[in-house]
Design a protein around this nucleic acid. Sequence first.
RNA 1: GCCCUGGUAGUGUAGUGGCCUAUCAUGAAGCCCUGUCGAGGCUUCGACCCGGGUUCAAAUCCCGGCCAGGGCG
Length: 373
Amino acid sequence: MFSLEEVSGGARAGVLRTRAGEVATPFFMPVATFGTGKGVGPQDYRAAGARAVMCNAFLLSLRPGIEVVEGLGGVGRFMGFGGAVFTDSGGFQAGSDELFVKASRRGVHLRSPFDGSVTVMTPQRLVEVQERLGSDAAMVIDDMAPADASREEYLRSLRNTHRWARECKDAHGDKKQLLFCIVQGGYDASLRRESAEYLAGLDFDGYGIGGCAIGEPKPDMYRAVRSSTPFLPDDKPRYLMGVGSPPDVVQAVSLGVDCFDSVFPTRNARHNMVFTRKGPYQLEKARFARDSGPLEEGCDCWVCRSHSRAYLRHLSSVDEAEGKRLRQAHNLRFMARLMEDMRAAIKEDSFPSFKESFLEGWFGGRIPKLYKS
RNA sequence: GCCCUGGUAGUGUAGUGGCCUAUCAUGAAGCCCUGUCGAGGCUUCGACCCGGGUUCAAAUCCCGGCCAGGGCG
């Protein structure tokens, strides 16, 4: 399922084999909650070079419904996306006032945004939903305590997370579908280690690291990552869920993480933030009104090859949907290219210098201490 | 030449004697967004056409000027 090829300065390059094809690691997944993004979709993901995307199992099970997706050959064929499709539980518990009702011993109680009805997503139910949706990689259900939870709450959520992970594993019958578990434990190094070691013993196809990028201070996030990855099996992919800011992705790769998903690049693109190797900038600024250059010098994306900043900034200022699509297409290509470049650097064992030069470019020479080790 | 309207941030406006150190939108500058993708959120900058008068108090009332639009010659 996963082959580790090279390691350089803690960063890993490998190949994840799914029934939808191989995905080279490290990789970044655009989020396609309902089988698409907002103003970007499967075609754009493919054009950007993304080989995997993340959908929401709970929401897809409500619309168009499990039977519909199943009848059309699974979520990947339903979407017409050539790459691998991951599905998340849909819980993202503490983060969603819309969907999340509560967590109980049985599972996570989720509310339909369509009719308000509440269903209990148990481990067995979630596994069935994802198997029938036909995603290429499924996630277990986990209990994520809020960023400011007490140690007691973390302990309780960890018991649920571990029990549910085991039950998901037991219920999972589709051996062609990968199954990832999720490490929790808050920001306490010992709890994270405990969670990672426990789950490592259950032998999943991949290991998610959850509870990060939910509003906690960055040092906490990196403590959580640093105290998780060392205790996970080397021959399985590690997936830092929800992380997607370029420097965070680079830093996490240096800590041994292999994959990511996040709305960060696309949401920020919609909000006019353009990623470049020299750092992000706000496209709507007047200084770009007559700028004939591309969004990013040297970028190989179709947007940069076809359009000027002046045109893109114009689309921002008139608030056109087309502008959102183009900005997102660029940021998605930026992420894919970043992953490709990291992989190449790992393969030639020059990752540390790649990381340093990337961070120097991104932060304009003033790299925050947080990223230096 | 005469008459009528109207002149408030760059732009469009609210305000018709004190609640105006003046409203809202837009603009400009800056910040934010990380497993539920809010076509989002936040901060700051920026104006009463000019001159006189009335009044305790004027963006607001009066007079003159200038400018703009309309009408009559």
